[in-house]
Simulated assay, not measured.
Amino acid sequence: MTSDTGAAGASARREYERRRAQDEQRIRGQWGRLGGLAVALTPERQGTRAWSVGAVGEQRVGAALDAIASDSIRVLHDRRIPRSRANIDHIVITPGAVWVIDAKRYSGRPELRVDGGLIRPRTESLIVGGRDKSALVESVLGQAARICDAVPGNPIRTALCFVDADWPLFGGSFVVRTVEVTWPKRLAERILSTATGAVDVDAVAAAAEARFRPSA
């Protein structure tokens, strides 16, 4: 096993705590002796709360991945991207593929929008709750490119895993620009479907852990 699998959601939780402390300091500075009361009565800023929401999403996806971890399925959480402030939420190495997973805790229904295809070029967009969230696809594909550089020659799979989304009772998961869009239970099933193959799990896990250190 690798020595440090990392803690799911750790960097998002730290950023939430940092922002919350800054918000509290600002409010106390504005209100002086009434600062404690003002802090208690002031709603948390949406931009601050978003980090806490994101951390919970990563933790829930991480728990689903840890449940299927074994000697042949290695799971790494919350890994720093070198020379970047960004991180990779989850990396899973199986005998059949190296998975790069971005966890999101969004409300609304994820949907695939396809435009063109006959006269105009085909384009695929990720829509969540009626809003274009295709930037999430770009982000996870960029993360996958970093993984590919670190462990060349291995099949790379990508996924956006949504927690608390409005999934339909039947179906629901889909693929947009090679990125699987799904929920934790379905993601675990998809990962288990790649449990056979020629990937050297030990070697790839060691290389990934060395290149992408834990954020915590």
Rank of each mutant, 00 (worst) to 15 (best):
A50F: 14
A38P: 07
L37S: 08
V39M: 06
A67S: 15
L37D: 13
L37P: 07
W51I: 04
D66L: 14
G62W: 06
D66Y: 10
S52P: 00
Q46F: 13
W51C: 02
A50V: 14
G57C: 00
G35W: 14
A55I: 06
A63I: 03
R45C: 02
P43I: 09
G57R: 01
G32R: 03
A63H: 10
R45V: 01
L41S: 12
P43Q: 08
A40D: 07
V39L: 07
G57M: 01
S52V: 01
A40C: 01
V56L: 08
A67D: 14
L65D: 07
D66I: 07
W51F: 15
T48Y: 07
Q46E: 15
V61L: 13
G54W: 10
Q59I: 00
G32S: 02
W51R: 06
T42R: 11
S52G: 08
G35H: 05
P43Y: 12
R60F: 11
A40V: 01
V39T: 04
L34E: 00
A55F: 11
G54M: 06
V56Q: 05
E58V: 02
R49K: 01
R49A: 05
R49D: 01
R49I: 00
A38Q: 10
R45G: 13
Q59C: 00
A50T: 09
A63F: 06
G35P: 03
A38I: 11
A67Y: 12
L37V: 15
A50W: 12
R33Y: 08
P43T: 02
G47K: 02
L65Q: 09
L34A: 01
E44A: 14
R33H: 04
P43C: 10
G62C: 07
A67M: 09
